[in-house]
């Protein structure tokens, strides 16, 4: 089964081609460049290199966020349309879950996160259990300070994974002390082959209904809801 995995949800651009669990090829960059320009050329060159035609694809897996709203949508628009046109299943995987796979060999809690500005992070808590990456706490958009307090209260070791680790290293160590595990930089980037692996055994999404995992309302909508509430209370 040929699986194409696409991740444009954060700064990393990742494309992987797998035959079941076997990696055929993988393309990863960690550059501040335009995903919209570079995604399809990357897919095209990888598939040409592997001598696989589009109609030989059996499944599309896509990182559905959280992350950059625009980046997530570039990935989803591409993956959904590929799946629809080729009439193959599509699976959306949380970008946090994909990153957690970098902690696959650890038995501790895994905390993947992405910076969401103003001290906020998109994050969740995962742990490898009985052959799968299990979500231990629901993903959320939360102040890092509050989140770390919740984690510290568990009194268990936590493996932190994030491309934005440098922004929060100090506050993590301050709050978590000896319970902190932070690996070297290459472990903080999501791998598209992990995305494919995560999507391999997941049930397919409905192509039409697959939507981004924003973890946050659009600002205009949040403001509008707030105003409605105030009007109702006043």
């Amino acid at each position: 089964m040929n699986i194409l995995a696409i991740d444009t949800s954060n700064q990393v651009l990742g494309v992987a081609l797998l035959d079941n669990e076997n990696i055929i090829g993988e393309f990863v960059t960690n550059l501040k460049k335009n995903h919209s320009v570079r995604l399809m050329p990357a897919v095209d060159s990888l598939m040409k290199e592997a001598n696989i035609a589009p109609e030989q694809l059996d499944k599309i897996v896509v990182a559905k966020g959280p992350g950059s709203y625009t980046g997530v949508r570039i990935g989803l628009a591409t993956a959904k349309t590929l799946a629809w046109a080729l009439n193959v299943p599509v699976v959306g995987v949380s970008s946090l879950e994909v990153l957690s796979y970098q902690g696959r060999l650890s038995s501790s809690y895994i905390c993947p996160f992405f910076d969401a500005r103003r001290g906020m992070v998109f994050t969740g808590l995962y742990q490898w259990e009985n052959g799968e990456m299990r979500e231990q706490q629901e993903e959320k958009n939360i102040l890092m300070e509050d989140w770390l307090k919740q984690l510290a209260a568990k009194q268990k070791e936590v493996l932190f994974l994030s491309p934005d680790i440098h922004m929060y290293r100090e506050v993590i160590l301050e709050t978590m002390g000896d319970l902190t595990i932070i690996p070297e930089m290459p472990f903080h980037l999501a791998k598209p082959s992990h995305l494919a692996l995560a999507g391999l055994h997941k049930e397919a999404d409905s192509t039409h209904n697959l939507t981004p995992n924003y973890l946050r309302l659009a600002e205009a909508e949040a403001n509008w809801l707030k105003m409605q509430k105030e009007n109702n209370n006043g």
């Binding site: 897919v43 589009p54 109609e55 570039i74 591409t78 349309t81 590929l82 046109a85 080729l86």
Partner: peptide, 10 residues
Amino acid sequence: NSAKALAFAK
């Protein structure tokens, strides 16, 4: 991006 995916798939 949808157009690119469509053109590529077909």
